[in-house]
Design a protein around this nucleic acid. Structure first.
Lengths: 340, 340
DNA sequence: ACTATCGTGGAAAGCGCATTCCCAAATCTG
DNA sequence: CAGATTTGGGAATGCGCTTTCCACGATAGT
């Protein structure tokens, strides 16, 4: 059906081997005269190398798998863009998989990527991991077969990646908030078994404790806008007293959750930050358009993705790097003293 | 290196053919007893079919290419999520390419997908197209070789896809705004050669003309948040008079642009909608978190993506469908009469 | 009872390409 | 100028798998 290299070789009157050498970066360069003939034939026939066949003959696919929790989430889509940028014009293609936070689907995605023999897998939206024996084994066997694994978040023992120091970042963030005057905190955390979520919440609490404070409450919701909205609504409904007494500061373990919480707060007729302050985590681009501007811990999301992409290209040195977020206090946490 | 089907066959004491028949959906089902033996061997060895080899031997890759302008743009990332949902658990993998609005990169992406022998290509962020001879030819040759093309936006003559009736949607939107009381409009359009942008702007203007109105001004900026921000800033600086005389209504050809415009307006110290009203187009999820709520034309973005995915699966009937957006007036276009 | 049919597993032929190996011609060396 | 060496094209092999095509034994038909 499609034009094969053989066809091109015939058309050019050379052998298959020569055609291959001309059209694909081989070490051996045929004579210019012959090369031109081959290239002309390829052009004329509209030849496209069959990537599958090439992958089979060589032993590399120029494919990298990217698994995220939800590609429509700005956090992940920004990282995804970074990955693409990092891969640049290396000719490497990105295979995308969304897991919807479902561990099963995550495993399926990795299996699929292993089947595709991707040169690397970038794991971005992973959960606890350390617990997930099955995934761990899968990854090990992938690595044994020469696959590279880059984890964004909490790199595994055996993998390289970009570690985000969630705990420390949260501590710093808490520190800044305290310095700004806040004393009454509520932590809005995500799923308990999501390591990212837990680390952020714990880091925050650690700092509070170390300063002699403690959280008014720690509440849990799904690690999503909706989850936060519901959790926050519940909280507001049952804690009217605390809220009218003091300016509470709600730390949400992600910006997306902060936005959900914000909505709940507004629906309740409360003002941010006058009645209740809100902080997020990640600094997703979406925040640019939200009023009041949301305080958060800035993570260089796109860069992180780019680094991951570059790591994949520099095949081999599976370095680890650590990123610590930067607290950014904006309008949503302006401190107001309550009159007694 | 990796376990091959041959290894599994040996381990199970059967032939390669039998192993293949057991492990991959063949028409012929070997005896249960033998099947179990093979499956056990595969499990024991940790066998993964080599997708490249399979693709070569069969003539299908179970791969679909998705090309978008920018995966970090909520418009595209929402569609991308839809596509994944539409593909469901069909085992089809998505190959992602971002073009950054560069026609060259778009062509490269399509070439890459052709090389990968993707079963289908979903073109989402395309531009004029009709003009781009090169892309057009590429696509035709892809189709001749059995590739399926689904275009989101403005389907080509030869392709199926989901057409978004931008013009009509804009007309309806303009109608609603007029009904709400607005009379002074400014159209903030994107790149002139972007069909989507032009259609939306023209549809809007058509409706105005048909109602006996005309736009105060039509301005152009890059089809992005930044582009709109700059264009709007310029406009505000040079049209102070018009603005203080009446409540202008700025129609932006996309929500993303509307957000950029909104920022420019706010930086100028103007209020929305009291001083100036703003309308977008698309109804991206981001709008949920913006205050004031932004009026727009709602497009079922995720559904559109899902339909595209489903079209790919139902290989063959390259249907076309037409989607017309629904005007949604929210706070950003509340009408205020100016005292004389 | 003997042939026609079916069901099953195995051998072998590709799928499209990269690459090793071989050989002829060209270039170099002294 | 003869022999040693390099250069460059072509034939052939194999990557891992699917899929005819065969051969063989079992079953059915008359």
């Amino acid at each position: 059906m499609a034009i094969r290299l053989t066809d091109v070789a015939n058309e050019a009157g050379v052998s298959l081997a020569t055609a291959s050498r001309v059209l694909n970066g081989s070490a051996r360069k045929p004579a210019p005269e012959i090369s031109d003939k081959v290239r002309a034939a390829a052009e004329k026939l509209g030849y496209f190398p069959n990537a599958q066949a090439q992958a089979l003959a060589r032993a590399s696919t120029k494919l990298v798998g990217l698994v995220v929790r939800d590609i429509a989430d700005p956090y992940f889509s920004t990282i995804a863009r970074g990955v693409q940028r990092g891969l640049g014009d290396s000719g490497t293609q990105v295979l995308l998989a969304s897991t919807d936070s479902d561990p099963t689907r995550e495993i399926e995605a990795v299996r699929a990527f292993m089947s595709q023999r991707t040169d690397a897998i970038i794991l971005s939206g992973s959960r606890g991991m350390s617990e997930d024996e099955q995934l761990l084994r899968l990854i090990e066997s992938y690595q044994e077969n020469g696959g590279q694994v880059v984890v964004i978040g909490q790199p595994l023992a055996t993998t390289g990646g970009i570690q985000i120091d969630n705990a420390k970042t949260s501590e710093n963030l808490a520190g800044e908030l305290i310095r700004a005057g806040h004393r009454s905190f509520v932590v809005l955390s995500g799923d308990r078994n999501l390591l990212t979520s837990a680390d952020r919440a714990n880091g925050f609490l650690t700092k509070l404790k170390r300063t002699g404070l403690s959280a008014v409450d720690v509440i849990h919701g799904a690690f999503s806008r909706e989850g936060a909205y519901m959790a926050m609504s519940d909280f507001l409904a049952s804690h009217a007293a605390e809220i009218s007494n003091q300016q509470l500061c709600v730390f949400c373990v992600s910006d997306v959750m902060a936005l959900g919480a914000l909505r709940a707060i507004r629906e309740r007729g409360l003002r941010v930050p006058e009645d209740i302050a809100v902080v997020g985590f990640d600094d997703i681009p979406t925040l640019e358009d939200v009023i009041p501007s949301i305080s958060t811990a800035h993570l260089p999301l796109e860069e992180i993705g780019r680094w991951a992409g570059e790591m994949v290209l520099s095949h081999g040195d599976a370095r680890k790097m650590v990123v610590t977020g930067t607290p950014v206090l904006r309008e949503s946490t302006e401190f107001f003293t309550r009159l007694p």
